[in-house]
Simulated assay, not measured.
Amino acid sequence: MACYKIVLVRHGESEWNKANKFTGWYDADLSELGVQEAKKAGQLLKENQLKFDVAYTSVLKRAIKTLYLVQEELDLHWIPVHRHWRLNERMYGGLQGLNKAETAAAHGEDQVKRGEKVLISAHGNSLRALVKYLDNVSETEIAELNIPTGIPLVYELDADLQPIKHYYLADQAEVNAAMAKVANQGKAK
Rank of each mutant, 00 (worst) to 15 (best):
A2G: 03
C3P: 00
Y4W: 13
Y4T: 12
Y4C: 08
V7D: 00
L8N: 00
E13T: 06
E13D: 13
N17Q: 08
K18R: 14
K18N: 07
T23K: 14
T23Y: 13
W25R: 12
D27L: 10
A28E: 09
A28M: 08
L30G: 10
E32F: 02
E32M: 03
V35S: 09
V35I: 15
Q36H: 06
A38I: 01
K39H: 07
A41P: 11
G42F: 12
L45Y: 06
L45E: 08
K46N: 07
K46P: 00
E47W: 05
E47D: 14
Q49E: 15
K51S: 12
A55W: 07
A55C: 14
A55Y: 09
T57G: 12
S58K: 02
L60R: 04
L60D: 03
K61P: 11
K61G: 12
T66L: 09
T66K: 06
L67K: 08
Y68W: 07
L69F: 14
L69E: 01
L69N: 03
V70D: 08
E73H: 14
H77L: 11
I79L: 15
I79A: 07
V81Q: 14
R83D: 03
R83E: 13
R83G: 02
W85Q: 08
R86K: 15
L87S: 04
N88I: 11
E89Q: 06
Y92R: 12
L98M: 14
K100T: 02
A101W: 04
E102K: 15
D110I: 01
K113A: 09
K113E: 12
K113F: 10
K117I: 05
V118A: 04
L119Y: 05
L119N: 08
I120Y: 03
N125I: 10
N125C: 13
S126M: 15
L127T: 05
A129C: 10
K132C: 13
N136G: 11
S138F: 14
E139W: 13
T140S: 15
E141D: 09
E141P: 00
I142F: 13
L145R: 13
N146D: 14
P148I: 00
I151K: 01
V154N: 04
L157A: 04
A159D: 12
Q162F: 04
Q162P: 04
Q162A: 08
Q162S: 12
I164F: 11
K165L: 02
K165P: 00
Y168S: 00
D171M: 12
V175I: 09
A177H: 13
A178N: 03
V182F: 02
A183L: 04
A188Q: 07
K189M: 11
K189I: 06
